[in-house]
Each structure stands twice: as C-alpha cells, then as structure tokens.
Design a protein around this nucleic acid. Sequence first.
DNA 1: GTCATGACGTTACTATATAACCTTGCCGCC
DNA 2: GGCGGCAAGGTTATATAGTAACGTCATGAC
Lengths: 154, 154
Amino acid sequence: MPHDHSHCVADALTRADALCAERGARLTTLRRRVLELVWSSHRPRGAYAILEDLSQQDGKATAPLTVYRALEFLVEQGLVHRIESLNAYVGCAAPGPTHSGQFLVCEGCGDAAEVDDPQVRAAIETAAAARGFRVQRPTVEVRGVCKACQEKHP
Amino acid sequence: MPHDHSHCVADALTRADALCAERGARLTTLRRRVLELVWSSHRPRGAYAILEDLSQQDGKATAPLTVYRALEFLVEQGLVHRIESLNAYVGCAAPGPTHSGQFLVCEGCGDAAEVDDPQVRAAIETAAAARGFRVQRPTVEVRGVCKACQEKHP
DNA sequence: GTCATGACGTTACTATATAACCTTGCCGCC
DNA sequence: GGCGGCAAGGTTATATAGTAACGTCATGAC
Ligand SMILES: [Zn+2]
Ligand SMILES: [Zn+2]
Ligand SMILES: [Zn+2]
Ligand SMILES: [Zn+2]
C-alpha cells in the first residue's frame, strides 16, 4: 500500500515527544534522530544500518555504542520494537501502555506489520499457564507474504 | 524437574537415527556428535559453545563453519530448533513431520520447553488471515519463569 | 575404475553487540 | 556565581555470531 510515509514519521515523532514529556523521559536530539531513522521505512532496520545513516548525516564516524544506547532507550520506552529473528528494529505503531505485539514480516517487501491480537495473546497465556509457566515477554514473529506482495506475484 | 537426562539424549539420538534412515538423509558422525552436544541439556546452546565442546573433545581447533553446517542440516531435518531470541539451538522434543512449535524459555534456569499448541497456531493463522497475510513460518518464543523456578523462589 | 555428488577442512572475512573508561553538559543547591 | 551529582554521550577495544570462497576427501552409482 503506497502511502504518505512522511505522515507516519511525523506522527511517530509527535507521539514520542508527548509520551516522553508525560513520563519525564529525556528524548534527546540523538535519540530523536535515531527514532526518525528507524522510522525511515516500515522495514526493520539493523543497528549498523542506522549507524551508517547517522555517520553519513554527520560526515564523521559514529561508534556502535552510540546507536545501541539510543535504541535501548527507545525500546525501553516502547517507541521501537526489536525483531529478534532479524536482529533489527522497527518503529512501534501504537506506543503507549507498554506492550509487546506480534509481527507479520513479509519475505517479499520486508515490511513488518505490527498487530496486537488479543486471541493470540490469550492463546499463549493459556498454553503457558497449562504448564505452570509464568509469561513475562512473549515474542511472536511470523514470516510469510503480505497481501500486497501476494497480489504482485499471483 | 530433576530427571535422568541421559534418557533424553539416548532417545533423541535413536529417533534421529531412525528418521534419517527413513528419509535417506545422512546423519554422519560429525552431525550426530553436534546433535548430542545440542542435547547436552535442555538449555539452548550457542553455536560457539558447541564449537568449543567439539574442539575440546578433539584437542584441536574446529572452524565455526563446521558447526554451522551441521546445525543447518539438523534444523532442516527438524531435529533441532533455533531460538531466534537467543541465537542458540535446542533439541527438538518430538521430531517427525517437520513442525514449528512454540518455546517457553525460563529466565531462571534457562531451559526452553517446546510445546505445540494448536490454539496458538490457529490464533496466529486467524490473525494473519484477517490481514491477508499468508503464514509461512511462525516464531513464538515466550520469556518467563517455569514452574520449578517459581517454586524455588516463592 | 571413473566420475559425480555431497561432506568436511582451511583461511579469511563480515556482521552484531558489549565492556571499560572518560568527558561533557545539565540541574539543583549552597 | 560556583560546586556537586548525575545521566548522556564519546572513545577505544573486544566479544560474540555468522558467511564467503575455495580445496580436499569420502561415498556410491555406473
Ligand atoms: Zn508509512
Ligand atoms: Zn510484502
Ligand atoms: Zn532431559
Ligand atoms: Zn526455570
């Protein structure tokens, strides 16, 4: 779905500003820049890719730790999610009460769509409870093909 | 649950022998050794940890590729699963028709219990279908605390 | 035996992530 | 104003994870 992505970015930054202000968290210039770079598309972006973007913008090399620290902050604040199966990061579509959604990762276009399906969450909770397992952080990353890509290759 | 783990290992190896024979897949000495090392506990084990085990057994350094190739084979055969969120590998409890189960990973003891819950699978399938997403490979890795560890720290 | 195939070894390299330590800038307070 | 405390960010080095390219050897079909 071709959309006006600049809106996605602008919205994400606005929400981030609001959330951090509300919580007294410091969304510094660097952290905000990293957040914007994560949001450069809906494809999860690796830490080193972001590092390169940053270095290029500044015309000088940046250290990995700089990026990792910013990402750590953004993940803690629930503004960004880490996709474990890709070692990459993607902007959260609906930050707020910190959550952990599920991700539909397309093999075709690479986009990762975030969904937060109560049924999925409940099924996992139930299956875990049946084994006496206390859930802390569920990770659900579904590889497959998105609607748009299916239509492209019929 | 303290159990006779040697049984787990023996069973796993027996099943692996049978499955590979049935399929005409070659479970070579190296691959069998790696499988045994993966099964050394119920904790997912990193490729480099296995590499060290192997090197130590042989008294000479082994190359990473050796291990990665064996692991690739074992994963393809469904004898071993990769835990994405840990970059580690764990033996499959019920190999056979190749499946992709869910994993309950304990923060306390590190054990990863494999479950294959139809409800979870169905919920994911439904949620994906509702968005026109075709599922290929679901990854579910739940971090939390297992029953035994909960009882240990009440 | 010959030859094709697949398994394994060797070397070098890329990618991802963290440790230890120091500098800077902000903020409240004396 | 100046000082103490703290958190962010910089610097350097290192740990951990994964691949590429190429060669050699074993197995099995013919
Ligand atoms: Zn967008
Ligand atoms: Zn797609
Ligand atoms: Zn066991
Ligand atoms: Zn446990």
